[in-house]
Design a protein around this nucleic acid. Sequence first.
DNA 1: CGACGGGACGC
DNA 2: CGACGGGACGC
Length: 571
Amino acid sequence: MADSRGDSSSTGSYRSGGSRRTNGDMRDYSGMDPRYHKEAKYSDPPNSRLFIVCGKSITEDDFREAFSKYGTVSEVWVVKDRATGEPKGVTYIKFNKTSEAALAMEEMNGRCIGNHPRPLKVLIAHSREQGSRREQNEEERLLRLFVVVPRAMTESELREHFITFGDIDYVSIVKDRTTKESKGFGYVKYHRMSHAAKAYENCDRSFKPMFADPKPVRDMRNDGMMLSGPGSSVSSSGFDMAAYTPPSGKMGSLPPMEGAPPAEACTRLAVVASPTLNQDQLWKLFDLVPGLDFIDLRRDRKSGQGIASVQFSNIQSAAYAKEKLHGFEYPPGHRLIVKFDPSHDMMMGPHSLMPPPPNMMPRMPMMPPPAPGGVGNGAAAAMSPGGAGPRPSGSLQTDLAHLAETIAQATSLIQAAGINPHAASGGGGGGGADGGGGPPAGPGPAVPGGVVMPEHYDPTYCSARLPAPQPLAALDSTVAERLFIVCHPAPPPPYTLKDVFGRFGNLIDIYILSGKTCGYAKYACKESAEKAIQTLHGQELCGARLKVMPAEPQDKVDTGRKRIKIDDQQF
DNA sequence: CGACGGGACGC
DNA sequence: CGACGGGACGC
């Protein structure tokens, strides 16, 4: 299922060479086996082709005119029936860049073009092989990036870099269950595909971003209802469209699909949902009713509640969905509110900002307030392994995750400093307060009310006198000095190294080569590096004897590519 | 002696 | 409901 990674070459340098291919560009296929041209070009770059369900009368020129404002359209293909030549109401549009396709989808989905009445349904095209099959969490594939992160990098730092491309749903770094050390990769999830695409194309290449495979869905206790849950196939779930007649006989008499276009206001619903529901879950629910065209979920800033706009292709479906789902408890304890969307008018696309009109902001009597008060409790819950449930999304959870990480950082700084948090709860190494100071680790094997030191932690800590903790340098800082570090017999844990080497200021990154006893520290300032050498060379840290010296320059930048690349054609 | 990292989400 | 064609000498 791999999304094609365009380029697997890596220099380990943060500044990628000017002539190297980036995620935004396309490959040259001229030398490639023709049999693979087609497959390859559709996914290059990944998710850059649109699948559009549309009225049958729209022409290629109509599409070009409507879509070329979002980027470079390399192909428009209006699908026609092989035998009859009749348009099938399906069109593919290929863009040169993923972000162009993303923007076009966000802007054009639900819109009409020309004077063709039927609104377009615009989706990112699947691979030919996947076809129309839907996947369990597939919207994640468009919103979430898989990234490689330096082991010393914290979630705050990761967020800091990726916030420049758009609003972040969450970031997470995967950590070892027991040691809580970073495993060197993580995820960044956005709310909008165009933001994820921008990050995919423009983030620092050392992150090696990929659109993440959707996470297998956690079971979402959906008992108490006949819903077989997201992923269950449509229509077989107790909804019986055929047996349903909408309240208004007039509406019901309209032809379902292709006849006169439905007034959009009658095919669009406004939904208020629990803050815990994400767009995917909402989609799965409403998709139980055939005829769902799209859902646009937004969140009310104050209440955190989901405000969704749900578009159906016909009045019957919309009316049926409203009737069956209004008041439905989903998830249990949270009633959905489903109405026809009175605020909708033709000028307003699904993605134009749609502040919920006051009359639609219901007070939900059944809904508990979004647990504000207990900040500390919330953070603890977020850190505790028991905090299951769906992935956090939305500002509240994001804030909690943020807070949890800050606390985890402070805790491990205290650990690294060898201070008993009970004895010196105020004095700890709060130096990481700017978000840069902390190791990625959580509090290690922790029990409520006390911190248990990791097994391999040597309480003698460090033989040298250490300065106070310092903030780290920005990840994209220019490297002023690189140090080579050797640890005998074994290296201290990463969070200790980061804390100790960070105390001389301006530390960008430090890592131990995997399976080895040596590694590198990068400083943004030469003086800091020199102080580190003076203070730490020959000293002992966690029972390891340290050698700390300037690193030999990285000679022979072998990118790992033997292939002759023809990017030297200057003229 | 010791030289250039890390890749799929909780067992 | 709504998922895959036609054309092609370019490098």
